[in-house]
């Protein structure tokens, strides 16, 4: 399977789009992020891999401003984001798009209004114009215009993911986050979604950060891979180097072995 870095694609710029330094976060006595240091270049597609409960989602939510880190710095376009007031934070959100794990579609609204939500509410675009764009975006993720009038609950899991993707790219964000984009999908639909992600990110020229534990997805989407373990980034490297990382943690994870330095937490915390 060709990795994304083998395809004909403009090499990502080295200017950092997102920089995390020493980010920590704890919930009660449990330290989830233990000093995350990470850089994502402009136009780069970074995939963060790691087991369940290692802090992947919390890290993503800290960058998105949904959670507030205890300490450390998160810079987007070289501007500190951890101390933004609510108004500036709302402005910053325009740069972000996010595909949630369960798609997180608004079930009180039809599909097209879900896709057009950021345009209508965030950018105050007239509804008719937003609907046109929504239908075009649905087309971009392989859905026909008749889906637009359906309710999200009438769609299959794969279709919901597509709608979620269309919503994430609708207002053409500079940075798109993907939270476990293939979880809960069959392998074929997972591959379709992976292809769509690669295509959409390429078309937009956006920076992408994906968290996943699906290696097939990681290989397909990533320019660069970072591995998170116990709230720290323990390895970063090019996607094509992942099989020769020389890191026993990465090796164990990539090959999906029960034996190795990573011990699965089977007790409730």
């Amino acid at each position: 399977m060709p990795s994304r870095s083998d395809t004909n694609r403009t090499p990502p710029s080295t200017t950092p789009k997102i920089t995390l330094k020493g980010v920590t976060k704890h919930f009660g006595p449990k330290k989830v992020l233990n000093g995350i240091d990470l850089q994502v270049g402009t136009g780069e597609s970074l995939v963060v891999i790691g087991g369940s409960g290692t802090g992947k989602s919390v890290m993503l939510k800290c960058i998105l401003g949904l959670l507030h880190p205890d300490s450390g710095s998160i810079r987007v376009d070289d501007a500190e984001t951890t101390k933004l007031n609510p108004r500036d934070r709302e402005k910053l959100q325009h740069k972000f798009g996010m595909l949630f794990q369960g798609a997180a579609l608004f079930d009180s609204l039809p599909v097209w209004e879900n896709v057009a939500f950021g345009l209508i509410q965030g950018e105050h675009m007239p509804r008719a114009q937003a609907k046109e764009i929504a239908i075009a975006k649905l087309g971009a993720v392989g859905l026909t215009p008749d889906v637009a009038e359906l309710s999200p609950s009438e769609l299959s899991g794969g279709m919901q993911k597509r709608v979620g993707l269309a919503r994430a790219i609708a207002d053409e964000p500079e940075i798109i986050f993907f939270d476990e984009p293939t979880t809960g999908l069959d392998p074929i639909m997972a591959d379709v979604i992976n292809e769509l992600i690669v295509e959409c990110v390429k078309d937009l020229g956006a920076t992408a950060v994906t968290i996943t534990h699906d290696m097939a997805s990681a290989r397909k989407i990533a320019d660069r891979v970072a591995m998170i373990h116990q709230g720290r980034i323990i390895w970063t490297g090019h996607a094509k180097d992942i099989d020769q990382s020389g890191n026993p943690y990465v090796d164990q994870f990539v090959n999906g072995r029960a034996d190795g330095p990573i011990k699965m937490q089977i007790r409730a915390l």
């Binding site: 949904l66 959100q93 996010m98 949630f100 369960g102 997180a104 509410q121 965030g122």
Partner: peptide
Amino acid sequence: TMRVTEQIDALSTLSTN
């Protein structure tokens, strides 16, 4: 339900308070 299915987080990411 919106909270547990991350729809409230989705609102924030779509620049809506």
